[in-house]
């Protein structure tokens, strides 16, 4: 197996969980408590936040004003007051919110500092009571009303999209046996790379020439000026050169179609591209990147920054 694939699969993120004061026993008197992290946890990059929600709430339950079952469908996490899109893998959301940190850390390689080695991600848990009008729920919020089944169904839908993009049909996904889809989902929960690879290799074409297109999503980094996260861009990426030139399709070839401003007047590439916490090079082969850095939903998520 590709050694980079194994390293990426094992990637983890240090997370500090803050909790909105209205969720805590004591309410406004807990202002002090809500300004400091109540939990310090470590999450695998390639998993989803809701997978840990029950565990987080269980660890906090002595401080919580409401029952866990009541909180789950009407809670969300935020970073700097912006709703985090739980339906994206944790590592993708981290890279979107911390892209500046990742870029500046990459400059510290000669003389690493503590900051360049240890990075923490502060996120906050919020809750809105049912009695309050639903219109007050924030933009970008998807209620988790059916628990893990909803997450699994959402994830399956993403794989159907990825399968269609790669093969021109979702039939391979739809023809997986029930026990295969169960073990595919379990491989993510149990962090079993071999199990994940066994099923995903039935969906992903075995060679570069087998790809109709490559499932990629571009994300813009978190931006203080917008009210919420921007919707991702899903480019059309084929692995065939248009002009009969040989050699693999590289990242720059495909990125510039959607982001022509990333090249300056001297022809120099001036942006940053991040996937799985790694800064990518414009000359990286798209096929190699997909094979090594694809996320658990079948897409290669790339954060694009022009800073």
């Amino acid at each position: 197996m590709n050694p980079l694939r194994s390293l990426v699969w094992k990637g983890e993120i240090n997370v500090q969980i803050y909790v909105e004061e209205s969720l805590l026993i004591g309410g406004k008197q807990q202002q002090h408590a809500s300004s400091k992290p109540l939990l310090n946890l470590r999450f695998p990059r390639d998993t989803f936040l809701p997978m840990y929600l029950t565990s987080i709430l269980n660890q906090l339950k002595l401080s919580l004003k409401y029952e866990i079952e009541k909180i789950i469908p009407r809670c969300w996490f935020s970073y700097n007051e912006k709703v985090l899109p739980w339906f994206l893998p944790i590592g993708v959301i981290f890279d979107m919110t911390m892209s500046n940190d990742i870029i500046s850390r990459s400059n510290d390689t000669i003389k690493p500092t503590r900051r360049s080695i240890i990075s923490t991600w502060p996120i906050k848990l919020h809750f809105k009571q049912k009695e309050e009008t639903d219109r007050k729920l924030p933009y970008g919020f998807i209620p988790l009303i059916a628990g893990e089944g909803q997450l699994e169904s959402f994830w399956m839908h993403r794989w159907k999209q990825a399968c269609f993009i790669m093969n021109g049909s979702s039939k391979i996904m739809m023809q997986l046996a029930r026990h295969e889809t169960v073990s595919f989902w379990n491989s993510i929960k149990q962090r079993d790379l071999d199990g994940f690879t066994e099923i995903s290799s039935k969906i992903i074409p075995a060679s570069e020439s087998g790809f109709r297109m490559v499932p990629i999503k571009y994300h813009l980094p978190y931006n203080n000026e917008t009210n919420n996260f921007e919707s991702p861009i899903q480019p059309v990426v084929k692995l065939i050169q248009n002009d009969n030139s040989k050699g693999p399709i590289v990242l720059q070839d495909v990125i510039l179609k959607d982001f022509p401003d990333l090249i300056d007047i001297n022809g120099e590439f001036k942006g940053f591209m991040i996937a799985q916490g790694i800064i990518l090079q414009p000359s990286d082969s798209v096929y190699e990147l997909y094979s090594s850095l694809l996320n658990i939903d079948g897409f290669l998520h790339i954060i694009i920054s022009n800073s």
Binding site: Y139, I142, P143, H157, K160, S170
Partner: peptide
């Protein structure tokens, strides 16, 4: 119908799967 909740213009909607 295979129904999922997803965002359209940053608001949640029930979306019927289209792959079949």
């Amino acid at each position: 119908f295979v129904v999922n909740i997803d965002l359209i213009s940053n608001e949640p909607w029930y979306i019927v799967g289209v792959c079949d």
